[in-house]
Nucleic acid binder design. Sequence first.
RNA 1: GGCUCCGUCGUCUAGUGGUUAGGACACUACCCUUUCACGGUAGUAAUGCGGGUUCGAAUCCCGCCGGAGUCACCA
Length: 483
Amino acid sequence: MKKEVVSRYAPSPTGYMHIGNLRTCLYEYLTAKHAGGKFILRIEDTDRNRFVADSEQVIFDTLHACNIKYDEGPDIGGKNGPYRQSERLDIYKEYARKLIDNKSAYYCFCGEEEKTEVEGEFTVHHCDCAKLSKAEIEKKLTAKTPYVIRFNAPKDDKSTTYHDNVFGDITVSHKEMYDIVLLKSDGYPTYNFCHIVDDHLMGVTHVLRGNEYLMTTALYTLIYKAFGWTLPEYYHLPIIMTVDKETGKIVKFSKRHGSVAFRDFVEAGYLPEALINYIALLGWHLGNSDEEFFTMEELIKVFDPKDIRKSSSVFDYEKLKWMNAKYLTQMNLKDFYKVAKPFIEKVLNKTVNMDALLKLIQPRVQILSEIPEKIEFFEKLPDFDINLLANDKKKTTLEIAKNVLTKSLEVLGKVKDWNNDNLFEALNSLATEMGLKAMSVMWVIRLSVSGSLVTVGGATEIMEVLGKDESIARLKSTLARIK
RNA sequence: GGCUCCGUCGUCUAGUGGUUAGGACACUACCCUUUCACGGUAGUAAUGCGGGUUCGAAUCCCGCCGGAGUCACCA
């Protein structure tokens, strides 16, 4: 019988959810769920210096918003708890001691060292603490000398090879390895150590993580070996890149290159579903299909980690916007209103025909934050140069505009059912009657009610949104300015 | 700098020895049209370079070049 697939997402509580981490999380989730397995959330809070209050909540909220459901986690519990590493300190000490007992690790009393990197020269920790006698160690321990526990990495000329399911066999020479710290002097473990202990104890079978671990994983496999544990399946993910605006170079997607936090994207008006769909495609592709749109359910069905690509990819905001627009236009009006409401209310307080307004903006925005500037004119008629009513291309003059406005007011006053079709019909016949092109009439009316050269929707659509009273009031005020 | 990985249109990608090198975003043109969008049609655009292997190479091998990652008591 095949073992159940278990994957995990193990973020550090840094206060925000990086979009790259979100992709890692997505792939981990999909890998587990595609195989009908289990997905665990574990908080890696072993660095007290970087701890940010409330970040756990950010993680919970993000996963919830993205519809990523974990089977075990700090807030919901599970049989492999606790799920915060800060609550598992005794476990790490116990396992570190096992490694000391079988000579795979040792106490190091050297104290903190400054990292030495001068002009490309790299040096690595080296000491003789491993050779200390039992008596000497006991003496230092009873004297409460601060110590760390280091892994006893091989010192020979050989190398270690492990298999990564994305990158293939990775071989690292033992000369590249050194005695990494397992347990810090403050009693907390390092990532290098605790992720191994936890993954083993929690039964994690599939490890997906950023490609920055590709090299050190060789050393990690040696720690597994020291414990006598079996290795999980490894999948190292390609890095997400971005174009540095200053240098034009392609660099790792990070904070200093703009918005990388999930929350920033939501505030800008991206839908979590669109974001998830987009990042799923950043490094993964479904066979030789051209399909680009996937719901979470579909992703679970088709996502196979063997289709993860090796080369890094550049995050393309334009394509994300396009995809977001697709999601926006496919929503029904009610759902669209739900997500658009906060952005609409930023500038619009008066009562308008909301359904008509939503229909106008839905196909015209890519991200929701574009809404306010597009609908501002509905709130209050902006000042505009009255001479714009005269336009050669539209075949209008101020005199024509005046006549159009005067006659329109008569015609429109008689419109009973104030909707786009009726308004268009009324103005279109008026144009014929006056011997004008519809284009000319529409230009005058649209400018008069919107005060804007470019608007969402045409003259009659705008009037439908504004309602009869407001539309007529605006036409009158513009007419008054001509006189 | 050592080590490791990567390299198809500007970007995301399909392609696993024989394709007119396909799709998507972006861009351009045209159509639609009450401005702007949506939508529709068409177009520009890629195998980093150099050597092999082969009848034949984006695909296999070697070298170079370019890019990235890593070298912490951070994860």
